[in-house]
Nucleic acid binder design. Sequence first.
DNA 1: GGTTTAGATGTTTTT
DNA 2: CATCTAAACC
Length: 735
Amino acid sequence: MADPAETLLRGLNPPQREAVQCVDGPLLIVAGPGSGKTRVITHRIAYLNRKVGVSPGRIAAVTFTNRAAREMRSRLGALLGDGAGRLTAGTFHALCAMILRRDGEAIGVPNDYVIMDDEDQMSLVKQAMEQTSVDSKRFPARAILSAISRAKSQLLGPDALAAQSDGFYDEVVHRVFAAYQAALARSHAVDFDDLLGKTVELFRRDHAALGRWQERFIHFMVDEFQDTNTAQYELARQIAGRHRNLAVVGDPDQSIYSWRNADIRNILSFQKDYPEARVVRLSQNYRSTETILQAAQRLIRGNSQRIEQDLFTENARGVRIRLVEAYTEEEEAQEVAREALRLTREDGVALRDCVVAYRVNAQSRAIEEACLRYGLRYKLIGGVRFYQRREVKDLIAYLRLLQDPYDEVSLTRVVNVPVRGIGKRTVDELVAWARSLDVPAYTALQLLADQDDYPSPFDARQKRRLTDFLALLNELSALKPTMEAPQFIDETLERSGYRRALLESDDPDAEDRLDNLREFRGLSAEFAGEPASEALPRLLERVALVADQDAIEENEEQYLTLITLHQIKGLEYRVVFITGMEDGLLPHSRSLDDPDQLEEERRIAYVGMTRARERLYLCRALRRRMFGAMGAGLPSRFLKDVPPDLIEKPDRSGRRSEREAARVFRAPAAAANGAGGAPPPFRAGEKVTHPAFGLGVVVNCASRPGDYEVTVAFAGNQGVKRLLHSYGKLERAGA
DNA sequence: GGTTTAGATGTTTTT
DNA sequence: CATCTAAACC
């Protein structure tokens, strides 16, 4: 029994063991929620090491987020110790960045390439549309971009798209597509889809390079396989092409990224491409109570396009799912906050064990406000992401420009930030002039500076300003090898005048912005110990690829987590609140008219529900602010699919009058304490009656936003209850 | 060329 | 409702 490999199998059920031990050849694991699939993957890696002697360094494990990769590493560390550090774990994008950094030049991806984010892509598409005179009124740039992105994630270039084009729209897309790719190339840039597509292209063309990576990773594993797109799957097949040790783990019912071109059919393709593949199903749920699992199962059965998985659990039945119905978004948030508070005080639940999940980021605001009001610490995941903030993007644009002067998007972004008298008109002229000379904008600037008499469209004043800017870039570039990244960032902010402009501006957020810049500088400290010229490419790559800046920290701090239903995938909490269970929000209004999208919305709800271990709250508001106006919210159609006997409904008989609802609606934030200044309705010690609970004695009367919460000890075995005064069911006894 | 303002406009999810 | 755009104004 001293066999270290055997100990890894302890505590696993038979299918889990099978998945762990099946270390030769292709493997498909279809795993329901809470089935311990992450555990199976890490154990499999450890088993490969202990039993077969495969070093973790020869294994690539692709995860959906960087967070998941980090988690996998630490789990593996617990099993294997030091050796685990050599595992290559990360997203497909990170893996591709690594490959391209080393071998990309073979297909013309320059060593110093930069990665464009979606905002940059948008501006490039708009520019490409102007260039090809495509009317942005008739063809929204966003739609064109998503068509381009769809084509790219299916490994179609402009020409391939044109070849299978069917109609005018594709023709338009094709034109913009080609111009867009040209603009990327001119800027030495790749977008997220290129990262994948160029790597696939590299492996198609350069078999020596492919062979090296095939030998490097003799085992390849993909988690969340249901959310991979065509390019990602192709890449996995390429790398696993020699050893055929490709293991994929997925759950079709949790596929929620089709809008990012994830293709659930990859699971079918896998079985076709690897007919010899072993298929293992993990159906036992170790996470949730039976009630929660059953409710989720019933919900997901509402989808017609699916294969039934018979999930089961041996966990206890647990408490019923609570339905929370509030009048407004604010009340919904307050009820959530109040309940979270109650759980921490009465039920021994830590605040960290609770999570509030919602469909759209905008919903977080009401919750945040409720948390502030009740003094709950919270942590917002996602939201306006750090790297997207204006000042951070400005700084990144400077750094990118200093790494790659041909990055035109960055150049036009910062050429007049802070204002240097180089307005839109001048910038347009510069870009047009550069294009007429068929050189990048940066080269045009150099021309302007070096050849005094070269004919240009600029007068002396503009010429002076432009060459001053060029001088600034060159000056900073010269500093790059002489100092470390944090110091270089300081110099950039100083010499560009950015910091000073921010200090002198009357922007009310100036302080925050400086804080953010300081924070960014702090991040760059990780790359200290080497000159900025070395650190910059890796720093910028990190910035582009690692989106989960506000990662969930594994510390002891107590806070309520606020997160979207998309980001919560892969996590679990004892208590889950899902807010906005309304038609139009979940399912989202943009998905209502498409059956396929509607099924995806249902899967999103399913993912949310199955995150809960013990308690699940489904919350909705009758009225919600949308488009600036209030709209009536109908309950989510998904609620109907949850069996009523699994749900505990609010006491409808005690519902407040419509008039009172209107009052709350008009002044939702009125009176943070007590009912608008009204005196407490009862005092401790008073005798009261309740229609359902009978006679009781008031224990306490605490003020609540817009209300009072009365604690009453009822006679007999009714026990102590907390009731909201506005429900109006309590009356003074003995009158 | 810069700045302010009114007006329109468009609202999901993220590596 | 908040953010972006275009046009008027400085």
